[in-house]
Design a protein around this nucleic acid. Structure first.
Lengths: 234, 234
DNA sequence: AGATTGTTCTTCGTATACACTTTGTCCCGG
DNA sequence: CCGGGACAAAGTGTATACGAAGAACAATCT
């Protein structure tokens, strides 16, 4: 079916035609997300459209569009006629998130184990190695990055777009909560990551799922310890 | 902490102040969703902003904001500089959805079983009874409605906002796919619903989870049979 | 035919205007 | 002193217009 392939290629190309253009709204959304995650905008803080527009150097329209998506993603709360405020993750929502994450990421681990190619596993091992080095260097920021990269990569390998996008959104929130709570558990958890990748490489779905669950249990326990400080609405 | 409660109450009140005002963007989003789910806009169909604005009798701004959220929810795909088209659920994405749904709704059933009050169970039983009547009357449209209401209610009873909102979004997509595929499995599945509610009432999380899984297995099997017609991109 | 050019349609972003709500302030009377 | 209402300020919600840039499509030329 040469013809069919040609069409396929053509479509892929067409998809990529305008794809390198990043609309301002997306840039604003990305900037807004990271600003919130990094704590530049604190929970409860009011986000007026004019202010955001000025902060990002754009007009109100892209800001509004970005805000709607940020609301859908749970980073801001929008009150009609009153505007947007940064969401306030409560300890309740934290535990809710972890419960859902357990289900989702364990599924991702299983699927990844069943579908991972040799190249996929190799890529994971590279991340693992880089993480080990960064851990030795005590470069916590980098470790956190690699931590995210590893999880996101596993989601991608799972090959389930729904799972991937949902779990990714959840994962961003976890990061947010962790940063607010300051402490980085990353170095401590690296051994668990190795277990997880080993399990994925083995192709044993059950084993991968168990490894993911163990990892998440430990992570959520750590999150709780951290949360003792309390975030709450301010 | 009386003071804390006072603040809480004050905030809740404030939340409700402007809350009755429904912004146009939300109305547009709701209308767009149902139009897509009902098949008024078919997969692959191009959605120009002008057209939508005219269809809904509003200006382009609310339409644009609604489109961004619809994209985040997976109902439309937006190609930069090319505009929005209705997403095309492939059979691949259907199975992906069901895999995720299994994890999520079984969790919801478990949580609901653990947390349901007598009033919650009573509400579910009312839906069940109405569903039985509608089934007898052969009122398939109503059965489908009650079907949704039941699932959504269980999600709500689970008390986990993350789980609830994510599973709800997935559920909307399932409805969409089913409507496209025409056939309504609803009457056939009502017995499973009774099993599920019984399990929730029993407070036995494991049992509720098993019931939910059994229900979803049957549903996904039915979806596959339907999908044989194939939706594919058009 | 195949490449090139031009035209048209749309999106994307900006700017502006204005109605309407909410919020905050100030002043007044109890 | 303080509750309450008038009034002003701030900010959202919506509409509209306009220009720039990209993509699609048709016409034209080689």
């Amino acid at each position: 079916m040469i013809h069919g392939e040609a069409i396929q290629v053509a479509e892929d190309l067409r998809d990529k035609l305008g794809a390198q253009h990043l609309p301002l709204r997306d840039q604003v959304l990305a900037a807004l997300r990271t600003a919130i995650i990094d704590g530049d905008y604190l929970p409860g803080e009011r986000l007026t459209e004019d202010r955001l527009a000025e902060d990002f150097g754009v007009s109100r329209n892209p800001v509004r569009e970005a805000l709607r998506v940020a609301e859908a993603e749970g980073f801001v709360v929008i009150l009609p006629r009153r505007g947007a405020v940064v969401a306030s993750p409560s300890s309740g929502t934290i535990s809710d998130m972890f419960v859902v994450r357990e289900r989702l990421e364990s599924l991702a681990a299983r699927l990844a184990a069943e579908r991972a190619t040799a190249a996929d596993v190799a890529a994971l091992r590279v991340l693992l190695e880089q993480g080990r080095e960064a851990t030795e260097r005590q470069d916590l920021r980098r470790v956190a990055e690699l931590n995210s990269a590893l999880h996101l990569r596993i989601l991608q390998i799972s090959g389930n777009p729904w799972l991937s996008s949902i779990a990714k959104a959840l994962y961003l929130h976890v990061q947010w909560v962790f940063r607010l709570g300051a402490a980085e558990r990353a170095p401590h958890s690296w051994a668990e990551h190795i277990q997880l990748v080993d399990a994925i490489e083995s192709g044993d779905g059950d084993r991968a799922e168990r490894a993911a669950l163990a990892h998440l249990d430990a992570a959520s326990a750590a999150a709780y310890e951290n949360a003792e400080g309390g975030y709450g609405a301010r």
